[in-house]
């Protein structure tokens, strides 16, 4: 369990790795990796029970990155936790690499499910939560969903079934950065009022600042205490968070920084 200043340091280091590996790859999705960096760092370094030493422990907590394009973030965190050597990060998206452009369960240690085709992760998370409950395990399952991804109908099929089956061992997080590839989410296809939608589907809804570690950790604690229904954290976030010239810029959704931009970004993330 890390404290807040440690978490801030880790998430900064993780952001640096995200930018370094995507620039080395010449492509990838840095913007949405940075918007969810504080949330996923909090999960892996404080909230979740998991260990690279025993990655198949049935009692582990599980994390599904439904917005699979943010995998540079997941890879940076898994490397930091020694699921694989950090040197692998420089092979992102390269041929024969264990680090694919989107997560691959069979290639990357620590990846619970292959994702990348949006909208599918919450269903998988529901299945894990159902299976773990059937096996009387204490483990919890977490699932990160993008705001643009929330336009996929399957997300709402899964939302309906998680509430129907009272999956209180399941916690979803919406990375609500209000930007997607073609522009602002509110203009491309408005998902608001997103919190009300989840409430209507029968979930315990917690609205938080997705860059405030106190709020994030308290929300996970509240989620654990909530019985009889699944919890969703609707996290207000900033795309490209942590690098001034990337923040709220749609273009950095799926574009790596140039070498010169990377240098400036790393300077800001010291």
């Amino acid at each position: 369990m890390s404290n807040n200043s440690e978490l801030a340091d880790i998430s900064k280091a993780v952001r640096r790795e995200v930018l370094k590996m995507t620039t080395a790859a010449g492509s990838g999705h840095p913007g949405g990796s940075l918007s969810s960096a504080d949330i996923v760092t909090s999960l892996y370094f404080s909230e979740m029970k998991q260990s690279a030493k025993n990655p198949n422990d049935p009692e582990r907590d599980k994390f599904i990155l439904s917005k699979g394009h943010a995998c540079p973030l997941l890879y940076a965190i898994l490397a930091e936790l020694e699921y694989f050597p950090k040197e692998e990060l420089s092979n992102l998206r390269k041929i024969s690499s264990m680090l694919q452009g989107h997560p691959d369960r069979n290639k990357t240690p620590g990846v619970e499910s292959s994702t990348g085709s949006l909208g599918q992760g919450l269903s998988v998370a529901c299945g894990i939560a159902l299976g773990d409950r059937l096996s009387k395990r204490k483990s919890r399952t977490y699932c990160l969903i993008g705001c643009g991804e929330s336009q996929e109908g399957q997300v709402w099929e899964a939302a309906m079934s998680a509430a129907h089956y009272k999956l209180d061992n399941l916690c979803a997080i919406v990375d609500n950065n209000n930007l997607q590839i073609d522009g602002k989410t509110s203009e491309v296809m408005n998902i608001e009022p997103i919190a009300d939608k989840w409430k209507a589907f029968g979930w315990n809804v917690l609205e938080i600042d997705g860059h405030n570690f106190n709020e994030i950790l308290n929300a996970f604690k509240e989620a654990r205490a909530c019985k009889g229904k699944p919890t969703v954290l609707v996290a207000k976030t900033v795309k490209g968070k942590g690098v001034s010239f990337m923040e709220n810029v749609c273009g950095y959704h799926g574009m790596a920084l140039t070498a010169e931009e990377l240098e400036r970004a790393l300077e800001e993330l010291k």
Binding site: P58, K62, E112, S113, G119, Q120, G121, L122, S123, V124, A125, C126, G127, I128, A129, L130, G131, D132, L134, S135, G153, Q154, E157, A158, M160, S161
Partner: peptide, 13 residues
């Protein structure tokens, strides 16, 4: 669609 994904998750568990 959700049934297929849920089946996948059950297999992972």
């Amino acid at each position: 669609a959700n049934m297929i994904g849920t089946a996948a998750g059950l297999a992972i568990s």
